[in-house]
């Protein structure tokens, strides 16, 4: 059995002739990628539904720069700064995650632990920022606005002071769905961190599990890049 396998390997040089993994990749990592493709399709559909409705109601669609204008400890009209900071936090935590994966490749447990901890802190910081952003969106401005004969401060799922109700619906759904992904990512990272601390991957001989968690984490960052563009910039 073994000898026939080795002879097969010698004869076949192409990736697709069998006897080896054609993508030079473990099944776990490949399935993480395929899951991310399907997840990307889900997010694409959500953002596209948002795009279609925004074009449908383009005359009454609010400008995000008039809605998200707060920054902690500062007063006045400051659009984009806060969400820019959130983007920075998420990109930064993506960097610390790649550094953890890199440390894993070098089997450097201490360094991997340090970068994983930074990544988790970054995740919590982002979730906190998200909560702050939601709080200000929901409570709204002091002035408020009359909507359907009701004085509205802020937003809920049926009406808001900023403009078309679908704007708030998509905001809650898309940033909420993304925020839940971030939350799941933090939980996954904590589980992986515990395994790294316990030396599970040193015993196993490779840190591929850190790499898989990293793929998921970068994907969450990638989705945010799109949310940032289509909700806040464009």
């Amino acid at each position: 059995m073994m000898s026939s396998e080795t002879s097969l390997k010698k004869e076949n040089s192409s990736d697709w002739d069998g006897g080896r993994s054609p993508f030079a990749m473990s099944w776990g990592k490949m399935y993480m990628w395929l899951f991310l493709v399907s997840d990307a399709f889900t997010f694409s559909s959500l953002i596209l539904a948002y795009g279609a409705m925004r074009h449908r109601f383009s005359s009454v669609w609010p400008d995000a720069n008039d809605v998200f204008t707060h920054f902690p400890f500062l007063h006045g009209h400051i659009p984009l700064a806060y969400v820019g900071l959130m983007t920075f936090i998420l990109i930064m935590s993506s960097v610390t995650m790649v550094l953890a994966v890199d440390a894993g490749h070098r089997m450097n447990r201490k360094s991997a632990i340090m970068w994983m901890v930074f990544t988790i802190i970054g995740g919590f910081m982002f979730l906190g920022s998200q909560a702050w952003e939601w709080y200000h969106f929901i409570t709204g401005t002091e002035g408020g606005k009359m909507v359907d004969g009701v004085m509205m401060h802020g937003a809920n799922l049926t009406r808001n002071e900023y403009g078309h109700p679908l704007f708030a619906d998509f905001f809650f759904f898309i940033t909420g769905f993304h925020g839940f992904h971030v939350f799941s990512g933090v939980v996954i990272n904590i589980i992986i961190l515990i395994n790294v601390i316990n030396g599970v991957y040193d015993k196993r001989g490779h840190y591929e599990q850190v790499e898989k968690a990293g793929l998921y984490w970068h994907f969450v960052d990638l989705v945010w890049v799109f949310v940032f563009t289509f909700f806040y910039l464009v």
């Binding site: 596209l48 539904a49 795009g51 279609a52 409705m53 925004r54 074009h55 449908r56 109601f57 383009s58 005359s59």
Partner: peptide, 9 residues
């Protein structure tokens, strides 16, 4: 979808 949104609008 963008075409459709514009058209219905």
């Amino acid at each position: 979808l963008i075409c459709e949104g514009n058209y219905i609008g």
